[in-house]
Every structure is written in structure tokens, then in C-alpha cells.
Design a protein around this nucleic acid. Structure first.
Lengths: 198, 198
DNA sequence: CCGCTCCTAGATAGATCGTTCTAGCGAGTA
DNA sequence: TACTCGCTAGAACGATCTATCTAGGAGCGG
């Protein structure tokens, strides 16, 4: 079928971009991994590598967003969910031999001074993650501003911990960042029921 | 003089790597920016682009490390210092039109699956930042483990906030991450004098 | 059968990649 | 002057890059 090939391009690109980044991933490598001819790539993506890259970033973002309900729904409480999120990330990173960290962070840093199309795709993904995480915190009675801070803080801490973890080949930063966010969440929840703190 | 050229190679490489990453920065671009011939590059760096890149990462790391005393020394207290660190980063990022974030994060993510030489250089820089930040926290009476967690958490939050900030072209993540770390530090200092908390 | 469309197929182009090559300059020394 | 050494200088190489090109197969309405 037709859409198969196009989807396969996006999928293999998403994988390659996560590991190598944008500049290091060649279209030849993509067509080889997708087992498809080069002509098909430019048929489905007239905008070339940049259009395909943006599509791959958006797909990666959408898939990664699914982890939020997957982890938060079965968790006993919000603080546990935050901890589980980081522990899951640490486990996955270790299993993949420090290859599978955030699917878009590398590209986000790489292209933000180079390609506005790609940069916007990354920004959209981050914003959709924030929007997806927000209700998990407001549902616990936290106000909008506090919830937003916790979500953004969590994503930032996770991304940064990935940077340290990949470079040092250790999961220490992920555990530390997880604890930092879990305790911040705990404190926010406490302040909610006892708004007298200073 | 001779060392001038070599230093210039390292300096311009550090700048280019910070903005574009490793793969997008060509040696031609480096020699052009350094106003030096290609032969000189391979004379000073027989290991080629990789050796020069590692040297640039290490220099960037050493220069960035200088910000720690520069900000922490004049600060009235530790919590203020943490806040000032993030506010300074936000201001610098905004002034450079979201170009000058962390000098090594982009490369760290990019090369960690590709070049072990470069990955190690990044890991060394991160570890030296941790070592440099540690005494600022232990000097306040915090134990070694807690201090290490705070420093790593701070670096991770900063790095991650840079990722979000560059992609979204906003400093919000930096402010949020700064507040997160400042409050975590505050709480740790409180727990120090009153070790009875839950 | 034709004619049209969607997609596959990969050869090819032109630019750029990192690296190696030889040549030569300028200062120091005998 | 003759020779060496550290460095400059950039042409040239083969590989690889992204993108374009032409050609053809498969399905479908007529």
C-alpha cells in the first residue's frame, strides 16, 4: 500500500533522529533503513529531509505523550506517578545502552538555530506535552499556575537528566531529578491543604 | 605566534559547536571563522575534527565553570545564588536571541552514540561542574549526599530548561527550573537545622 | 486497447564533507 | 650559506551529502 511506505519513512526517521540527531542522519541512511527507494521519499515529502524530519519529530512527540496516561493512570497517587516516570525513563535508557533517551531533545537543540520549521515542530511537541501533563496536576486541586510550573519543571528536569545520563553513562541524574520533582510535587500538594506556609 | 592559531581554532570551534552542534559544524567553516589555513588545523590537531571538538568542549566547560564562583561568591546566600544562576542564564539566552545556551549540551546529546572521545570530554566537563558546585553546598552544612543531589539536580534542570527555552523561544522554563531548584535548596537548608521533618 | 494517476526505482548531478598531500615561509643555529 | 623545525598555505582526493531527473510498473475509468 501507499501509506505504508510513507509511515515507514517517518518511523525509521524518528528512530534515527533520536539516536543520532538531525545532521548526522542522512537521507540515504533513511531510505536504506526503510527499505524504500529515494524517489519515494521525495514523492511523499516534497520538502525533503526537513519536511520528513518535522513529521518524525511530531510522531515521536505524539508517541512519547502516550506515556503520560500509561504511567499516571495506574499510579496510586501523583507523587508516585512522578517518581515512576523518571524511574521508567532510567530503566529504558539503561536497557537501550544509553541510546534511547528523549526522542526529540537532540534535534531540538541542534536545529533551533538552523531550521525554523524543525524548531517549531519541537516547540509544538513540548507544548503538547505540557498541555497533556497539566490536567494530572490540576485534578489534584493544584491551581493552574502551580501545575504548569510543576509540569514544565518535570519536563525540564527529565530532559536535562537525559543529557547528563547519556554523557556520563549513568542513571544517577535521572534518579536525582525524579526525586527533586517528586518532592516539589509533594510540597505543592501539602501547601494546597495548608495554604498558611511562608 | 604559534599558539595563537591553535587557541583561535579552539575558541571559534567552541562557539560554533554551542550553536550548531558537532555534525553541522564543518572544518571548512572552522578554518574560515578562525582565519587560518586548513593545514594548520591538522598540524595542531592531528586527530582532526574529533580532537579539536573535544578540546573545544573542554575549554567551553572550563569557561562555563568560572560562572560558579562569579555568581555564588557575591550572592548574599545559597538560595539567592541558585536563583541568580538561572536568571543569568535566562538573560544571556535572551540577549543572544536564543543562541547561547549551554555550550556543550547539544554536542553531548549528539555524539554520545557516535564518538566515545567526544562523549568522554562531555562527561568530564559535567563531572567537573558537579565537583565545582559541591563545596558551595557542603559549606552551608549540608551533607555530601544531599549536596551532590542538589548540584546534579541544578545542572539537570538548567540543561533541560535550555532545551525547552531554545525550542519554544521563551525563558519560562528557565525561571520555573530556577525556582524549583531554589526551593529545593531552601528546603534542604531548613531540614539541616531541623532534622525532624517527615 | 488507451490515457491518466500514484507511486516505485535508482542513476545522476552538483555541492560539500573530512582528510591528506606537497610546497614554501621565517626564525634559529652552525 | 646550508640545514632544520614549526607552522602556514591551499590544491586535490575520494567519499558522502541532499535533491533532481527520467523511466516504468500497477491500478482504474473509459
Amino acid at each position: 500500500m501507499a501509506t505504508d511506505t510513507k509511515d515507514r519513512f517517518i518511523d525509521v526517521s524518528a528512530d534515527l533522529l533520536r539516536r543520532q540527531g538531525y545532521a548526522s542522519t542522512g537521507v540515504q541512511q533513511i531510505v536504506h533503513a526503510a527499505k524504500a527507494p529515494l524517489g519515494s521519499l521525495y514523492h511523499h515529502f516534497p520538502g525533503g529531509k526537513e519536511e520528513l524530519g518535522a513529521a518524525a519529530i511530531r510522531r515521536s512527540g505524539a508517541l512519547y505523550e502516550l506515556l503520560i496516561p500509561e504511567i499516571f493512570d495506574p499510579a496510586p497517587d501523583l507523587v508516585s506517578a512522578v517518581r515512576l516516570f523518571f524511574e521508567g525513563a532510567a530503566a529504558h535508557l539503561e536497557e537501550s545502552e544509553y541510546q534511547d533517551a528523549c526522542p526529540i531533545a537532540t534535534v531540538a537543540l541542534e536545529v533551533s538555530s538552523t531550521s525554523d520549521t524543525m524548531r517549531e515542530a519541537c516547540a509544538d511537541v513540548f507544548n503538547s506535552w505540557i498541555a497533556a501533563g497539566l490536567p494530572r496536576f490540576t485534578a489534584e486541586g493544584l491551581d493552574e499556575a502551580t501545575s504548569r510550573e510543576l509540569v514544565i519543571g518535570m519536563i525540564a528536569a527529565l530532559e536535562g537528566a537525559f543529557v547528563l545520563a547519556r554523557a556520563t553513562q549513568t542513571t544517577e541524574a535521572l534518579h536525582v531529578a525524579g526525586e527533586l520533582c517528586a518532592q516539589a510535587t509533594e510540597r505543592a500538594l501539602d501547601a494546597r491543604s495548608a495554604p498558611a506556609g511562608g
